[in-house]
Amino acid sequence: MTPVSLNPADAQRLVADGATLVDIRDADEHAREHIPGALNLPLAGIADMPAPSGPIIFHCRSGMRTAANAARLADAVNGSPSYILAGGIDAWRTEGLPTSVDRRQPLEIMRQVQLVAGGLVLLGVVLGFLTTPIFFGLSALVGGGLMVAGATGWCGMATLLHRLPWNRRTLAA
């Protein structure tokens, strides 16, 4: 059975009545901001979720990941009532409901990839115009890397960024 979509106020009422709120985002996203009391079970390991004892409400950042994986999430709960928080944590925050934010945690890895990739592409273009066209190759290299990441699901830049010192706190958490 496909999970039913809930608005943040209805989700909050269900949680107050004993429903379990499950954050399917990766650990680095959850560490930076999460809904208090939410259990972090990243989507990659959702099939190993313990049998629920009551209703489950799944959420992500914007609601798109949960909606795209609704059938997979429904399978993980083995027939227990399941719901999706419409709009995710973004909608929860917009409604003025509490979130726990830890700004000391690094930005999510994918946001770091977007910032670094965008910066390298821009640098390659600027240097290509101002100095020598060989720097356009930097933009092409980053574009090719992003295409490989999209096609295979493996991102070399994310792997490298994950190992940098400022991201080690999230690995240990």
Score class of each variant (00 low, 15 high):
Pro106Trp: 10
Pro106Gln: 12
Leu107Arg: 15
Ile109Met: 12
Ile109Gln: 07
Arg111Pro: 04
Gln112Pro: 01
Val113Ser: 14
Leu115Asn: 12
Val116Asp: 01
Val116Ile: 08
Ala117Trp: 03
Gly118Ile: 06
Gly119Val: 08
Leu120Tyr: 02
Val121Asp: 00
Leu122Ser: 00
Leu123Cys: 03
Leu123Gln: 01
Gly124Val: 04
Gly124Cys: 07
Val125Cys: 00
Val126Cys: 02
Leu127Arg: 03
Gly128Glu: 02
Phe129Asn: 14
Leu130Ser: 12
Pro133Trp: 11
Phe135Gly: 13
Phe135Met: 11
Phe136Lys: 08
Phe136Trp: 13
Phe136Pro: 11
Leu138Gln: 01
Leu138Arg: 04
Ser139Asn: 03
Ser139Gly: 14
Ala140Asn: 04
Val142Tyr: 03
Val142Asn: 04
Gly143Glu: 01
Gly143Asn: 04
Gly143Thr: 01
Gly143Phe: 10
Gly144Ala: 14
Gly144Lys: 08
Leu146Glu: 08
Leu146Ser: 05
Met147Tyr: 13
Val148Glu: 04
Val148Trp: 07
Val148Lys: 04
Ala149Arg: 06
Gly150Ala: 10
Gly150Arg: 08
Gly150Lys: 03
Ala151Ile: 11
Ala151Asp: 05
Thr152Ile: 04
Gly153Glu: 08
Gly156Arg: 10
Gly156Cys: 07
Met157Trp: 06
Thr159His: 13
Leu160Asp: 06
Leu160Glu: 10
Leu161Ala: 05
Leu164Pro: 13
Pro165Trp: 14
Pro165Tyr: 14
Trp166Gly: 15
Trp166Leu: 14
Asn167Ala: 13
